[in-house]
Amino acid sequence: MGLVSAIIGLFRKITRRTIFLIVALTLSFSIIFSNVAFIQKINLYILSKSISWTSEKAYNYIESLPEGSVVLLSADYAPSTKVENDPVVQGFLIQAFRKNLKVIAISLWPDGAVLLENNIKAVALKMNKKEDEDYVIGGYVVGGSVAIEKMGINLKTAIPLLKHSNAEFLKNIRTAKDLKLVFCVAAGDSLQSYVKILGARYGVNISGGCTAVMAAEMYPYIMSNQLIGLFAGLKGACDYQILELKDQIDPNNVPESVKNMFAQSIIHLLIVIFIIIANVVYFYERYEIKRKIKK
């Protein structure tokens, strides 16, 4: 009993500062150790065995699109969620370019426009794709849901930069209805807006990715097929990279998203341990109170 109360006494001393310190140390070490070949292999193995059905659905739909289809990519996030959303955008671009799809890339967020341009230029450079031939950058589109509404009526007035592009594939595109898919990677409510406006009113196929915290809100749309599929959070990002790169992944040098998953795994486990400790302390305190009352 003495040992138990000593341990409980130690747990009781845990303050906010202690938690912050433990989190900081755990995160630092897990980021360093995420580069260990053994950890990378285990991470990759488990992740490849547990790919979400929502990710698979979204991936398979893009895979089924015929060559030359025009798709819209909307990257609506800021650098704060770059780690979760960038791999999804990159995965989409790699898959789209591999399948020779024509991409119109826009962002409803000013910061997202720069991130999108960085990604699209890097992937296009790697895959030998040319601007105004295989893809068009529509930049930052002002207006949020109003701009989405306008896309359903006239795509070129909604995305003004498209008027200056002489891409061949844009000639047959008048409204969002002419697009085979709208793929939105969001950190806000734009994915919902695309579903509600372009999906529900104009019958456009919508798919995308979002941050892990937003995922719960998106499931009703997936279950009703209003949203084809979803790459949710870092797990979704890993799913995409694994689905797209498959056998090309070197188990000793996995993509960044898979490496980052180790740090996320450890921190999730740590939070669960904190919850268990908090409850042990709580029940012990209740037991002590009851014992004192009995006495």
Binding site: F20, K82, L270, I271, F274
Partner: peptide, 21 residues
């Protein structure tokens, strides 16, 4: 921007410890 957002991990850990009972 990323650093500011990553502070969330610290606050979530602390909040989970205090709230999930």
């Amino acid at each position: 921007n990323s650093a500011t957002f990553s502070l969330l991990a610290f606050f979530i850990a602390s909040a989970a410890y205090r709230a999930f009972r």
